[in-house]
Simulated assay, not measured.
Amino acid sequence: MRFATDPATRIHWPASFGRRFLVTVDVEEEFDWSRPFSGAARHVAAVAALPSWHRGMRARGVAPVYLVDHPVATDAATAALIAPLLTDGSEAGAQLHPWVNPPHGEVPGELASFAGNLPEVLEAAKIDELIAALTAAFGRAPRVYRAGRYGLGPATLRLLAARGIAVDASMRARFDYRAHGGADFTAIDGAAFRTAQGVIELPLSVVYTGLLHRAGRWLHPAATRVPRGGGVLARTGLLARVPLTPEGTPLADAIRAIRRAAQDGARLLQLAFHSPSLVPGNTPYVRDAADLAQFHRWWGGVLDALERHGFAPVTLDEVIRAA
C-alpha cells in the first residue's frame, strides 16, 4: 500500500510553537532480528536499562513518549519500571507487534508481521487487546499508536480513530517496505498532517542531505534500484537519506540532517529507537560496550545540535493541543 499526503491536510503550527522535536521509544521485547518471527519471543529484560536513559533525557528537558508493546505491558515487573517514568509530559502509547500480541489467528511469517496485512477483524482485535493491556498497566488508555515494522494497512487509521487514538506515529518518511510485504512511505515528507480519519500523523523524521537534496524524493528511490547506487550518492556527498535515529545513523550524518531540516523550515522532528538497543547484544546497532558508549554519545551530540539550530523538546500533549 502506498501512502501520500495532500498539502491541504498538512498541520500548520502556530508561530508560538516554534521549532520542536519529539523523542519516541519502541519499548519492546528482545528478539533475534535475523530469525523468523516467533510468538515465544517475550523476554523483556532490556527494559531495565530504560530508567537510567530516561533520567539523562529528563536532565536535558526531554519528555520521551514510550510506545509499549504487549509483552512489556503484560509483564508486571517491567510495567512497574515504566510507570514512574510517565510524569512531566512523558506518557505511554501503544506499539503493536502482531506476532506476540493476541489473539493469534494469523499464519506466522513476514507478511503477517505487518499488522495492516491482517484481516481487519483480527487487526482490530489485536489493537483492542493491546489497548486493554496498556490501560490496565498504566491506568490510562493510550493516545498514540505505532504499528511495529511501520505496518500500516488500509483499515488501520480508521480502526485507531474509532478507538479514540489521537496520534499515529507509524509512517517512516521516505522508506519503502513493499519488498518485504509492507507499505510504501516514499511520498511522505516528514511533515505532520491530519489523515482523512481525523488522526494526527507524526511521521518519523528522515532528511535528505547533500548537494542534490532537493531532488531526493525522486532521485534516491531511482538510485537505490541500481546496485550500490544509493551508497555511491552518499559517499560522494551528493545525496544521503538520513533517518533521525541512533540506530545505524552516524552522529555526523544526524547533525548535518538537523542543520538541513532547520534550513528547510522544518517545525517538528521525531527521533526514535528500539529499547533493546540500550543493552548490548540485542540489536545489530549495539553489539558491545563500545557501541553502547557511542549510542549515548550520539544522544548528547544530537541534543546539542537540536538546541543549536533552535529545536526545543515538546511533549505529546503539547503537540496535540497545538495541532
Rank of each mutant, 00 (worst) to 15 (best):
Leu292Lys: 13
Ala76Ser: 14
Asp189Pro: 08
Phe17Gln: 05
His309Asn: 09
Val27Tyr: 02
Gln197Cys: 06
Ile127Thr: 07
Val207Asp: 07
Phe31Val: 07
Pro280Met: 11
Gly139Val: 11
Phe273Trp: 15
Gln294Glu: 14
Arg260Phe: 01
Val100Cys: 10
Ala234Phe: 00
Pro276Asp: 15
Ala63Tyr: 02
Glu123Ala: 12
Ile82Glu: 01
Phe17Ile: 01
Arg194Ala: 08
Arg60Lys: 14
Glu247Asn: 06
Ala115Met: 13
Ala266Trp: 01
Gly39Gln: 09
Ala266Leu: 00
Ala305Tyr: 03
Ala293Trp: 09
Leu134Glu: 03
Ala169Asp: 10
Gly109Tyr: 09
Gly116Pro: 06
Asp253His: 11
Leu85Met: 12
Tyr66Phe: 14
Pro246His: 08
Ile258Lys: 02
Val68Ser: 06
Pro250Ile: 13
Phe273Leu: 12
Leu233Glu: 08
Pro142Phe: 02
Ala49Lys: 09
Ala41Asn: 11
Ile255Lys: 09
Ala161Leu: 05
Phe175His: 10
Gly105Met: 10
Pro280Ala: 09
Thr135Lys: 04
Ser170His: 11
Gly190Cys: 08
Thr74Met: 09
Ala252Gly: 13
Ala262His: 06
His309Asp: 13
Ala147Cys: 10
Gly181His: 05
Arg228His: 13
Gly230Cys: 09
Gly151Trp: 05
Leu233Asn: 04
Arg140Thr: 14
Glu28Pro: 00
Ala15Phe: 01
Ala8Gln: 15
Ala115Phe: 09
Trp99Tyr: 10
Ala162Gln: 15
Gly310Met: 09
Glu120Ala: 15
Pro108Phe: 01
Pro142Gln: 08
Ala124Ile: 06
Gly210Asn: 03
Glu120Ser: 13
Ala76Met: 11
Phe138Leu: 06
Leu303His: 04
Ala137Tyr: 03
Pro250Ala: 06
Asp264Ser: 11
Ala290Val: 14
Glu318Val: 08
Val167Arg: 01
Ala79Lys: 05
Ala293Asn: 13
Glu110Asp: 05
Leu81Gln: 15
